[in-house]
Design a protein around this nucleic acid. Structure first.
Length: 261
DNA sequence: TCGCTTGTTGATGG
DNA sequence: GCCATCAACAAGCG
């Protein structure tokens, strides 16, 4: 999501929204096409914020646009000549920025439409729509993470990807972090030793930093994420077979050899 | 046709 | 209250 925030900064920040085109109203949540257009057209985009998986695109004098990308959403910057994609659900034409450059298009592309666009008039609206969110994963220090794990009988993976505890980690990142920290995803969160908590925090920061730098969760072969879709995946570290289980209701790939109980 | 999937929410039951 | 599981949302793939 951090990548999409950067797209919004480079493509839209400081520019005026000239036109809102909704190709598929199926991604609008609690807002009509008419209201979205009335609220946003003519507004200038201010500095966007991100919290966990949410992107908050504020405007100078109007409401904020809230975006969630679900499993398959993307935000792209395109020129008006670039051909549209079948799954471009909403297109914001922006122009008239400080440099008076060519107008361009911010395109919300999403195959599955699991999430979408919300509109928030006030800060209270933003809070209501985002719901119960923990601190952003990138902002959490070691002590804070230890607090989150303490006293929780849930499995450590369930805690990590629970947005109300820690905002920003999804299923893939959760597996990647636990694999690199050598912690079994099914361990009880409160059972982690001080050393394991430390490893979890260090690897969380590393994995997030690398993912933000690349713009998505890397699919390098040296990462678990680069192996999980193999027919018979093997561990990049010990070459042993990886296992696939359900943990916390989500498909979970892990190495029984490296991630001991 | 069925099972599966980078996410979230709400119902249900232990 | 806590926690796990399941279904639903939706679209595409094998």
């Amino acid at each position: 999501m951090e990548e999409f925030r950067r797209v919004l900064v480079s493509c839209g920040q400081g520019r005026r929204i000239e036109r809102v085109h909704v190709a598929d109203p199926g991604v609008l949540r609690g807002v009509t096409v008419r209201r979205l257009r009335q609220a946003l057209e003519g507004q200038r985009l201010s500095a966007p914020k991100r919290h966990g998986k949410w992107l908050i695109a504020g405007t100078d004098d109007g409401p904020a646009l809230l975006l969630h990308f679900g499993m398959t959403g993307q935000l792209l910057c395109a020129s008006r000549e670039d051909p549209h994609h079948q799954h471009d659900r909403v297109v914001l034409t922006v122009g008239g920025g400080p440099d008076n450059g060519e107008p361009r298009e911010l395109r919300y592309r999403d195959q599955r439409k699991l999430q979408g666009f919300w509109l928030a008039d006030t800060g209270a609206d933003v809070d209501r729509i985002l719901g119960d969110q923990g601190p952003d994963a990138l902002s959490v220090d070691r002590a804070r993470l230890a607090e989150m794990l303490a006293g929780r009988r849930r499995r450590v993976k369930a805690v990590l990807i629970d947005q109300s505890v820690l905002a920003g980690l999804g299923n893939l990142l959760g597996d990647e972090i636990l694999w690199r920290a050598r912690i079994d995803p099914a361990r009880q969160a409160s059972d982690l030793t001080a050393d394991e908590q430390r490893r979890l925090h260090t690897t969380m920061r590393q994995v997030l930093r690398d993912s933000v730098r690349v713009g998505h969760v890397p699919t390098r072969r040296s990462w678990l994420t680069g192996r999980r879709d193999d027919p018979e995946p093997s561990c990049p570290r010990c070459s042993g077979p990886l296992r696939r289980d359900k943990v916390a209701g989500r498909s979970t790939t892990w190495c029984p050899n490296c991630q001991s109980r």
